[in-house]
C-alpha cells in the first residue's frame, strides 16, 4: 500500500516534471531566504550578547581626591539605582594597566608620573537598557568628574538586529504562505489531470486516505527536495558570508558562528519545514475533493 503511494507519487512527479521543478525552485528560495535572515539574526544576537557582557562604563573621579576619599565613593556609586557593582581602580593601578597594554617598543612613556591618570571606578549595571540613564546619575555624584560610555557599537548592532528580526519574521510569514500556495496549486493541477481516475476511485470505494496518498507523497517529496536543496544552498551562502566578513577584516568586530554549530538545527528546520509545507499544502488542496 505504501509502495503504491510512493510509486504513484513519483509517477505523478514524472508526469509534470517541469511544474514540479518550478515549485521546488520557489520553495527552496523561500526556505533559504527565510533561513538566511534567521541565521543573520542569530549571528547578530550572538555578537550583541558578547558586547553587552562588556557593557559597563567608567566613572572618572575628580583630581586631587585622596585615596580614602576615593575608596569611600564606592558606597555612593553603589547606592545609585541599577548599579550592580563598582570596582575601584587607583591612579597607579590605572597607569599599570595602561602600560601593560603598550607594546615593548612604546615604552617611552614608561617614566610618566604615576598619578597622571585619574582614579576611576568601573561600574557594572543591572539592566543594560538603562545604561545611559544610570551613567548620567553617576556622573552627577559629587566627586565624579565625568563618565565614558561606549554604547555605540552595541546600539548599532542592536538596531540592525531589530531590522533583521522584523524582516525575518515578515519573510517567514509571507514566504511560508507563498510556499504553501505553490504546493497547493501544484497539487490542484496534478489533481486536475487525474480527475477521471479519482472519480473512478471514489465510486468503486477507495478510501480517502488511498486517494490522498499519492498526492501527499508528491507534496512530501517536493518539500523534502526543496529542504535538501536549501540545506546545500545555505551551506554555500554561509561560507560566502563568512569569507566576506573575513576579507573586510571585520572578524574582530563581528564573530561569525561556525556553520558546524548551526548545521544540525538548520538542516532539521529546512527538511522538517519542507516536509511540513509539502504535506500540509497537498492535504489542504485535496480536502474539498474528498468531501463527496
Amino acid at each position: 500500500m505504501t509502495i503504491y503511494y510512493i510509486r504513484e507519487g513519483f509517477r505523478g512527479i514524472r508526469r509534470h516534471l517541469l511544474m514540479f521543478l518550478g515549485s521546488v525552485a520557489v520553495i527552496t528560495a523561500c526556505l533559504t531566504l527565510t533561513g538566511s535572515f534567521a541565521l543573520l539574526a542569530e549571528n547578530l544576537d550572538y555578537n550583541i550578547g558578547q558586547l553587552i557582557d562588556e557593557n559597563e562604563f567608567v566613572a572618572y573621579l575628580e583630581d586631587g581626591m585622596d585615596e580614602d576619599e576615593a575608596a569611600g565613593m564606592e558606597s555612593d556609586i553603589l547606592a545609585v539605582d541599577n548599579v550592580r557593582d563598582a570596582i575601584y581602580i587607583s591612579s597607579e593601578q590605572a597607569m599599570e594597566n595602561y602600560l601593560e597594554r603598550l607594546e615593548e617598543s612604546d615604552r617611552l612613556f614608561a617614566d610618566l608620573p604615576e598619578d597622571l591618570l585619574p582614579a576611576r571606578y568601573t561600574v557594572y549595571v543591572e539592566n543594560i537598557d538603562r545604561l545611559e540613564e544610570t551613567s548620567q546619575q553617576v556622573a552627577a555624584l559629587d566627586g565624579v568628574d565625568h563618565v565614558t560610555v561606549s554604547l555605540s557599537v552595541a546600539e548599532g548592532f542592536s538596531s540592525t538586529r531589530k531590522v533583521v528580526v522584523t524582516v525575518a519574521a515578515l519573510l517567514l510569514a509571507a514566504l511560508l504562505a507563498a510556499s504553501l500556495l505553490v504546493i497547493f496549486n501544484t497539487t490542484r493541477l496534478a489533481m486536475q489531470g487525474r480527475m477521471e481516475e479519482i472519480a473512478v476511485m471514489k465510486i468503486v470505494g477507495a478510501t480517502n486516505g488511498f486517494v490522498r496518498g499519492p498526492f501527499v507523497v508528491e507534496g512530501a517529496v517536493m518539500g523534502l527536495v526543496s529542504g535538501g536543496l536549501a540545506c546545500a544552498l545555505e551551506r554555500g551562502f554561509y561560507e560566502v558570508f563568512q569569507q566576506i566578513i573575513e576579507s573586510y577584516q571585520l572578524a574582530d568586530l563581528f564573530y561569525v558562528i561556525p556553520f558546524r554549530q548551526v548545521r544540525t538545527i538548520v538542516f532539521a528546520v529546512y527538511l522538517g519545514g519542507g516536509l511540513f509545507i509539502g504535506i500540509f499544502g497537498s492535504v489542504a488542496a485535496i480536502r474539498r475533493l474528498l468531501k463527496v
Binding site: 481516475e197 473512478v200 476511485m201 468503486v204 470505494g205 477507495a206 488511498f210
Partner: peptide, 27 residues
Amino acid sequence: GVVFQDFRLIQTKTVAENLAFVMKVIN
C-alpha cells in the same frame, strides 16, 4: 457496481489495467 453512459474508462490505462485498477485501489 456503477456503469455510466460515458464509460469513464481511464484513457492512459489498457483494458486489463482499467479492470485491475478498481481492485488495486481497494487494497
